[in-house]
Amino acid sequence: MLRYLLRRMFVMGASLLAASVLIFSVVELVPGDPASFMLGTGAQPETLAALRTQLGLDQPLPLRYAAWAGAILQGDFGTSFTYKTPVAGMILDRLQVSLPLAVLALLLAVAIALPVGLFAAGRHRRAGDALAMGAAHLGVALPNFWLAMLLVLVFAVNLQWLPAGGFLGWSDPVPALRSLILPAVALALPQAAILARVLRSALIETMGQDYVRTARAKGLSASQALRRHALRNALIPVLTILGMQFSFLLAGAIIIENVFYLPGLGRMIFQAITQRDLIVVQSAVLVLVAAVMAVTFLVDLAYAAVDPRLRRA
């Protein structure tokens, strides 16, 4: 078990290092000079050169990478070219929206997918299964921004139960949570649909396994065998999908953030790219990569928790 963990952690560290090099090079290779963007088209060459020196842009590439990476290791993510504020603080602010949103959406997705998947698998090839999977098809196919607008129309405009958008910070937690509900639902429904389908097919496959037949021969009813023996075995593929979904929800919520005017991480990165705020882009992407890896690590831990064959390997 310990060896398994150590190996995973080593892989994670190495991947993070490789990712940082890649992110840095890609951002550097993309055309567009932050200094000339900041000063506009009519800038004097001397002013431009001075600003480039001030930003450190005249240094050779490896040196700049080393400086950037070294600073990050000490918690210094640099200063935004555009806003002149520390990037770390900006990312932290945005994470306060994006992280709860992603977690909320994921919990919702699981809460919907679990019963639907179990229901459909239990009624394999019968009407209930067809109905549930038809709904799941629809859920996968619907664009989530359209779903978001629909939710706003119904629950914010017509019924006026929840706010239509905006986010005023966590100082008052109840309105903050209320403003995250609709976006979380819009994000969760398509993910729940995917998850339910994966869970259903994994369950159906495990239901055909010999050990489920053994369970039935022991005297378990079909639904007991499904819950006690098939479900846990079917969780392994589901965990993989879950990990990928969380990563997507963390940064991929940009469209939903736009529909609901949420100050999330996705919108910040998008703005930083249009403004050539390289330091913000680099750091935010690196934070995202680290988050994705942390999730992957957690998924690996979950695998080991579920499957004894990995624990003792």
């Binding site: 021969a217 005297g219 023996h229 075995n233 004894p308």
Partner: peptide, 29 residues
């Protein structure tokens, strides 16, 4: 009915199968 049968299976009639490698749940002791 199925509920009665569940009480008989495993208690009054037991069964073993051909493939011992897959007949047991891999996640349970």
């Amino acid at each position: 009915p199925e509920r009665e049968l569940c009480r008989i299976r495993g208690a009054r009639i037991g069964m073993i199968f051909q493939e011992p490698m897959t007949a047991l749940n891999p996640l349970m002791t």
